[in-house]
Amino acid sequence: MPSLNQPSSPVSRRDFLRSGARIAGMTGAGALLGLMAQRAGAVTHVWQIDPAKCVRCGRCATDCVLEQSAVKCVHTHAICGYCELCTGYFEPEPNALNTGAENQLCPTAAIIRKFIEDPYYEYVIDEQLCIGCGKCVEGCNRFGNGSLYLQVRHDRCVNCNECSIARVCAGDAFRRVPVDHPYLLKTSH
C-alpha cells in the first residue's frame, strides 16, 4: 500500500511523478543492460540484493571489490512517510530536526532533506556520496515504512563471477537475477 502521508500539493505530486520516473529509469537502465548483454552474447544474470533478506550488516560498504561500493541506498518514495523526524536521516536522538551535520545519521551526509509542505519532507539519496552502509536503511526499517533499502547499482557493479559481498552477506540476501530485470525494487511495505 502506498504511504498514507502523501502530501497533497501540486509540487509534491510532481515529486511523486519524478520519483516514479527514477524507479522506471532504474528499470529502463536494466533493460538497456540486458539488451547490451544479449548483443555481447555474454552476461545473462547479475547480482542483486533481496531487500526482504538484508539485515543491514554493514558488509556492503566494506566488502565490495570496488573502492567505493557498487551497493547504494535507494528510496521508493511512494511508500515513504515523508516524516519530519525521518529515522533514516536523523540520529536516534537528534539535537534538533535540522540539517546540522551533528544530527545526521549518514556518515557521509548522502541524504538530502527537502521541505515539501508542513510537516512533510522529502529524502533523496546522493549516490555519489552513498557508500552502501545501510545505516539509514536500518533506521527507516526499524521505525519507519522501510522505504530506504540497498541495491547493487549496475552502472557501477563489474559483475564479479563471485561477488565478494555475497560471500560474507549476513542475511544471505544476494542472488543472481536476469540481466533484463536487474533490480529488486520495493513497491509496497
Binding site: V55, C57, G58, R59, E138
Partner: peptide
C-alpha cells in the same frame, strides 16, 4: 537479524 547487527568486516 541479530547476527546481522553484530556482523561486518
Amino acid at each position: 537479524r541479530q547476527r546481522g547487527r553484530t556482523a561486518g568486516s
